[in-house]
Nucleic acid binder design. Structure first.
Lengths: 214, 214
DNA sequence: CCATAAAGTGAATCCGGATTCATTTCTTGA
DNA sequence: TCAAGAAATGAATCCGGATTCACTTTATGG
């Protein structure tokens, strides 16, 4: 035999893959998934169009990968934010706040992840990840219920409702903020701070026991 | 001059248009918007493909029309349901209940209207109609706030959150129910009655004053 | 330096359904 | 019945970006 992948080649390959993902994410952050064309990603990654298919079997798999990486990052950030604090009520509040804050930080990406129309395969992925989001809140709820801070109820359903409320209330401000916000030029939408608190208040009321202070 | 549209011709034209809309809606109720092709609608309406363009300038305009008619009908049903009753709390409850009930009655259509991935133009329409939904709830909230039954708060934002919570909690059961439900063979998803009440309970907690009984 | 296998290339092809348009058929008022 | 305008027809065209593939280049081990 005369050829076998060596660690050097392997890492090179991994690098290229990472580069593809990064460039793809940039494009999505700029113009959403509809701004993502194989040819463009290839160009920006300095490889040929066809080569992309050595790394991702199809465009939609690339989209899915981009989506997953980006969403995972968000989930981790929100989770981390909640873990920095004690007490179920405060934790939930922190999580919600972090979610909104980050969305407003990069409205284009947030919009793409939450609401942009995409083809079915990607939409299915989105659906799965909504379930993951619900899972995040579900855990927080569970703890709070155990300690009597939250109303006893099917946490999963409740968490889903929270996800819905958060996503919906954020979409419109997001759309407003979405136009002309370069990826690394954070702009807080004027409405946000007030809105943010109102949204959170809504969520907390739906969930916290009357006694449970905030 | 030798030709001018006569009332007969006009009504014939209106009929054809209505038939197109109806057949299109049927298709959407069966397979969502992605199951809607101009050729198929034409076939079922017993006219030629090209003729469709006499009635709708493009496919997406047809989609938008279908969406609008269907959604408007839903909005009216929900509004009507709330108006049959007295008292803000009961009214809101009735509206939410009606929303869910109808969604489960025709899961395919509901899914298409609420969550199916569609192209941007239609998605924009959906966005506008979400605002209309929010408007429906907003009015109910306003009345309730005036009478002290609901917590004082920006109704619009709150209504938006309600819309989000409702849509999100309904999507998954919807997807389960979606497969193999002929348009006129109502099936209540097993989970619904319990779920429905839980969802409503969530919404009410977020909105009703501690004193406001249910 | 060679043979082999993998990776890279990018122009050509594919694709499926929307849209068009030259032609035919129908309506109307005279 | 006729002329002229409207409506209907449906096969042919269009479209834009994903995907392919015959060929070139690069990496590996002997």
């Amino acid at each position: 035999m005369a050829y076998r992948a060596t660690e050097f080649t392997e890492s090179r390959k991994a690098q290229t893959r990472a580069r593809l993902l990064k460039e793809a994410r940039k494009l999505v952050s700029r113009e959403g998934f509809r701004g993502l064309s194989i040819a463009e990603v290839a160009r920006r990654s300095a490889i040929a169009t066809g080569t992309v298919y050595r790394y991702f079997p199809s465009k939609s798999e690339l989209c899915v990968a981009v989506f997953e990486v980006a969403t995972q990052r968000e989930i981790e950030a929100v989770t981390a934010a909640s873990e920095q604090i004690e007490g179920p009520v405060q934790q939930l509040r922190a999580a919600l706040e972090c979610f909104i804050q980050r969305a407003m930080q990069n409205p284009n990406l947030a919009y793409a992840l939450i609401a942009e129309p995409v083809d079915p395969e990607l939409e299915q992925t989105r659906l799965n990840y909504r379930a993951q989001w619900a899972e995040v809140f579900s855990r927080l709820l569970q703890q709070g219920i155990r300690r009597g801070a939250f109303i006893a109820q099917p946490e999963r359903l409740c968490a889903t409702a929270l996800v819905g409320a958060m996503a919906e209330t954020v979409i419109i401000p997001l759309q407003q903020a979405r136009h002309g916000t370069p990826e690394n030029n954070p702009v807080i939408h004027p409405l946000t701070q007030a809105h943010c608190q109102q949204i959170i208040a809504f969520c907390m009321r739906a969930v916290v026991t009357p006694e449970g202070n905030s």
